[in-house]
Design a protein around this nucleic acid. Structure first.
Lengths: 136, 136
DNA sequence: CTGCGACTTCAACCAAGCTTGAGGTCAACG
DNA sequence: CGTTGACCTCAAGCTTGGTTGAAGTCGCAG
């Protein structure tokens, strides 16, 4: 199995070498070894990096991502926790989809003030219901 | 129409007063006036704040959000730009949904190493296709 | 064996998005 | 009229997720 230099990993994943070293420092990824000083990576690191990118897109912090996937894709979290994260994601998906519909509506609706457009109001109520503040 | 003190806005929106002042500084929101030194807010600021929160959830920066919604919900962006943002959101939604399915799968799949599970691989391929790196 | 280029370390810096703290103002209650 | 508590300003600090730069190491080509 071919091993990869940091430069190749960077090129293939689109993640800067400095970022890869940073990820290593915080325990997110690790090379399988060194040749001289140079880090040698297993190609599966590319899968890991994709997952990390995915997690970032979802707004998870690198810490959360480490908990979820672990280095080496251990997926260390207890199952209920994983389900909880998935639920969280689905809530987020509904919010994003409301926002998307809102933007498309605004792009099409001729009403001068959206605050008065019933469709806009309906979408806003939807959005509001989904991002409940702490207080009543 | 009742006006709101910063404390009330904070309580109802779940956004800290310091954050509200910060949002004002960068031109995201503004009070309708002052009573003495105290900022007085129109209740529609709550709608704005919900939109801002929604935008943040979607990963937009405060700058982007200001461009999109403007202060006063002007929605200053040209329509094609808004459509583009909506497209962007939908791409993101598909990624999140893949990630969600991936997490649920991991929570249920008994396979010791997910890297070998065909279902896992399939989901990963899906995810990979959706977050194409810069290089070929 | 020399030199090039890709790597290495480490510390310093950066930007976004806030929070915190010191010190001040002001309106309303008793 | 005084004191309380919620507000004010401004500067400095914090966290996350990195990048940048200086100075050094190394392996392979010629």
């Amino acid at each position: 199995m071919k091993v990869l230099d940091i430069g190749e990993v960077s090129e293939r994943s689109g993640v800067a070498p400095s970022a890869l070293r940073y990820y290593e420092k915080i325990g997110l990824i690790s090379p399988i070894g060194r040749r001289g000083l140079r880090r040698q990576y297993d190609p599966t690191v590319l899968t890991q990096l994709s997952l990390i990118a995915l997690g970032r897109t979802a707004g998870f912090s690198l810490d959360e991502i480490r908990e979820m996937f672990g280095a080496d894709l251990r997926f260390g979290l207890p199952r209920p926790e994983l389900q909880r994260k998935a639920d969280e994601l689905e809530g987020q998906i509904r919010k994003l989809s409301t926002l998307s519909r809102l933007l498309r509506h605004v792009a099409e609706c001729p009403a001068p003030s959206h605050l008065e457009c019933p469709k806009f109001q309906k979408l806003m109520r939807l959005a509001l219901r989904r991002s409940a503040p702490r207080a009543a």
